[in-house]
């Protein structure tokens, strides 16, 4: 083991971090945008919609990402239609091919993750939203999706980490991201241990940041007053109590004036046991 070489490789491979990150983040953004409507269709009671989305996710989740990548990068050029289309300048480039494949693949996984979350939203909450007269779009935007997203946050974090790792496949279509640079460096230096160790450190660092970010997000959601139904109930009671206490402390304001149902403050007897 050559420590200097490891440090040198890290500084060389760090140039690939940008490509790894841009591939990962762009495909995550695209897949997030695509999979929200798809997961709603997948969870809808309509058999035709749900079935066609299932066919898409089944095929993309059932075949290796490498095959999908080669199918797009090498396979599409066989079709004359693709070669003559306006997208050809894009589909000729390995970057856009990799981005398209990763996005499609990630959409399939994310759709299934979100679907599980949507199905986990309690029926009563959706019915309550309907009873309040919210439109379908508002129900999804305000009720279904925020609750579903919180429920599946850990699975979504796994999907994001999976995407960071999957971006290493871009090296097979000549892209020089972390793994691609590492492979080139190994063939130049013949020092596989040091170079791959450096690449591994970079990937671990990226994934550590991702998982720390999602852990923070989870804590943030859990602490916000609408974290889940139990917290929401607790939040409203505490705010009501605070309101009451303020009213009592002021000594003048009457809590009944607000017109909201309030509860009497419990009478606490200190140091005495009334029941004995």
């Amino acid at each position: 083991m050559d420590i200097d070489l490891i440090i040198e490789s890290i500084s060389v491979l760090a140039r690939g971090v940008f490509l790894t990150l841009s591939l990962t983040l762009l495909s995550l953004v695209i897949s997030f945008i695509l999979s929200v409507p798809l997961s709603l269709l997948r969870a809808s009671p309509n058999r035709a919609f749900a079935g066609s989305v299932l066919a898409y996710t089944y095929v993309f989740r059932g075949t290796p990402l490498l095959v999908q990548l080669f199918l797009v990068y090498y396979g599409l050029s066989q079709l004359a239609v693709v070669r003559q289309s306006i997208l050809w300048p894009l589909l000729r480039e390995p970057f856009w091919c990799a981005l398209a494949t990763f996005s499609l693949n990630s959409t399939a996984y994310t759709t299934e993750v979100f679907r599980a979350g949507i199905l986990a939203v309690p029926r009563g909450i959706v019915e309550a939203a309907q009873a309040l007269g919210l439109s379908r779009l508002m129900q999804i935007r305000l009720i279904t999706f925020p609750l579903a997203f919180r429920a599946v946050l850990p699975s979504y974090a796994n999907e994001v980490i999976g995407m960071v790792k999957a971006s290493s496949l871009a090296s097979t279509v000549t892209l020089l991201e972390i793994t691609g640079l590492a492979r080139r460096m190994v063939s130049e230096t013949f020092a596989p241990y040091e170079v791959f160790l450096a690449a591994g450190i970079l990937y671990l660092l990226l994934n550590f940041i991702v998982s720390a970010f999602f852990r923070m997000l989870e804590i943030h959601f859990a602490q916000s007053s609408t974290g889940n139904s139990k917290n929401a109930a607790a939040g409203s009671i505490t705010s009501r109590l605070r309101h009451l206490r303020r009213a009592m402390g002021d000594g003048q304001a009457n809590p009944y004036e607000t017109g909201q149902p309030t509860i009497h403050p419990p009478v606490i007897k200190k140091g005495k046991s009334a029941n004995v």
Partner: peptide, 21 residues
């Protein structure tokens, strides 16, 4: 923790090239 944070492709390359070396 380490193995679940590394890309599978990288592990395969390490074992292959590292083993050969």
């Amino acid at each position: 923790t380490i193995m679940r944070g590394l890309p599978e492709l990288l592990v395969i390359l390490v074992v292959y090239f590292g083993g050969t070396a």
